[in-house]
Write a protein that binds this DNA or RNA. Sequence first.
DNA 1: GATCGCGAGTTACACGTGTAAGTTGCCGAC
DNA 2: GTCGGCAACTTACACGTGTAACTCGCGATC
Lengths: 333, 333
Amino acid sequence: MADRTVRRVTSADVARMAGVSRATVSYVLNETPHQTISAGTRGRVLDAAARLGYAPSAAARTLRTGRSQLVLCLLPDWPIGNEVGALLGNLSSALARQGLTFVAHPGSREDRPISEIWKAITPAAVLAFAEFSDDEIDAMRAAGVALVVALLGRSRQRRRELEVPQHLVGRLQAGHLAGQGHTRLGYAYPDDDRVRIFAEPRLDGVRAGCTAHGLDAPLVQTVPLDPEAAATAVRRWRDAGVTGVCAYNDEVALAVLAGLRRRGLRAPDGLAVVGVDDIPAARLAEPALTTVTTDQTAVAAHLADTVVAAINGRPEPAASVADLVHVVRRASA
Amino acid sequence: MADRTVRRVTSADVARMAGVSRATVSYVLNETPHQTISAGTRGRVLDAAARLGYAPSAAARTLRTGRSQLVLCLLPDWPIGNEVGALLGNLSSALARQGLTFVAHPGSREDRPISEIWKAITPAAVLAFAEFSDDEIDAMRAAGVALVVALLGRSRQRRRELEVPQHLVGRLQAGHLAGQGHTRLGYAYPDDDRVRIFAEPRLDGVRAGCTAHGLDAPLVQTVPLDPEAAATAVRRWRDAGVTGVCAYNDEVALAVLAGLRRRGLRAPDGLAVVGVDDIPAARLAEPALTTVTTDQTAVAAHLADTVVAAINGRPEPAASVADLVHVVRRASA
DNA sequence: GATCGCGAGTTACACGTGTAAGTTGCCGAC
DNA sequence: GTCGGCAACTTACACGTGTAACTCGCGATC
């Protein structure tokens, strides 16, 4: 009867089977440059590794090199929706193609200082939606993290990778309404402080869009996800002569639609409404919601390229912003 | 000028500062049982560790013990919504209180064999929504994973932790409609094979609820997230004498509401509709959607207890299913 | 007064890897 | 005929930790 405790297959086992030293195994498997290995040995090593089902110990490799193959993403404490979920999925796929494993850590910073998290993982790179303090960034770099990216918000050294798409979203919303002939726009701001880092660049984009089309700045109102409260916002907009509203996202847009109903009105006549994200509920709403979507695959691919480049010490690639966002035309605007 | 490459603080540094051996530091910091350390030494070690900002190397610890402090959750490839997001967040908090770090890995299994993932992490436990093959389970156990939990679907050795709540959800939906006097029910099944593992136990719950109230089995129809297709389903239900419909989730329920509108009808008179999840769009719909919610905090807490118990070799705790799901009464049923 | 027990530590090894430095044998150049 | 150079490897160490096994002094016990 075999040993109860099944031992892990190590590179020493592969070496023994291939009849070479452990170093040779390492050189072959890692394709180390400037090392000359004959085709015969190479084949024997590869064969032995495959036959034994060898997988290197991530812990040992991390200990030795001081850096793991993990990319850590710190999720925000506000509920993540489909669109962020899609971004994470695409990011994971894109990084997997480069041999990096993507993991996400949900949960607010209050639970545990974030240093606990990355010290428990030693990631190659850290992505986060919110900002880092300079101290945090220094501590992470000192611990061997190659790259720290704040996707949004202030960041000392890196540019904010998601900022541009958010800005474009806002511009496109405003542009769509301006193209429909609306001359006085409103902005439906979310009633949740935690998403401000997303809302601000979108609102800036709407402002820029208004300016570009020669319109006045949008009339901003906070809209809770509640029909009654939304109805109040609708009244104020209409009193001010607003005819089209850009909403922070589809949920806020749905609230505006509900507010219109409360007042016996309906989009687009009472108020044209444009959302963001194209959630499933958007096309099921009454009227169906016009909305703006982002090509999360493209964003994820660029983000993955940036991470890989930084880990390998190469300069970061330029972003292509063309065709990143689109309007999905439906009945509400 | 100091050394450019900032060295990591190790337990040896702490030992030097406290004037003790490295082993003593380890014993103090890990509170190893059956080790007698004087209060004085203990204090000096703790003080030195705090002063130096010492954090143990996860890689070294993992290498030594053969098991990391990470709990890995493999996310499904279908889009995760708010409710799963909330579950993950709560789970992360609950595990953090026990010293475990929770990480989620998004992305389909097609990208990369899942063995690549857990070999790159060596987690203490693995949670997944879908099933594992027996071979996968064996391989993971052999690699040192203490616990493998399939939250849903078949699983050889562990029970499926999320199965019961899904079943309860279905029962409660049926019970609510039965309580309103409906005698012939329909079930709106999602048009996405990937969520079958969620849909089946919910549908089973609805069936059980019908039986418990002496009703016929529900008339099941697949409902795509499209108003026109939903309208067809609505016609068939009404032709069959169905007066109340349980939907897989709120999005499918919104589709049913849209289908009713297409036919000039409205809930609850044309067809009473009950959703699941209470997404933000539910209370903004017309009419506002009655729905069933699950206490994700309680589910997460129990799941965390199960994980911790398994890692420490204790028997798994019993689940309390009382008050886990609730009906949110609105206009649609 | 030798012995035992025990509190309070220390020494030493193992975990599995990457890689710098060293060791062959062989071939071509002077 | 020697010597440098190179292909093809091997030897040996370091990474930072947990823990079994050992040491040492000291007070109590027979």
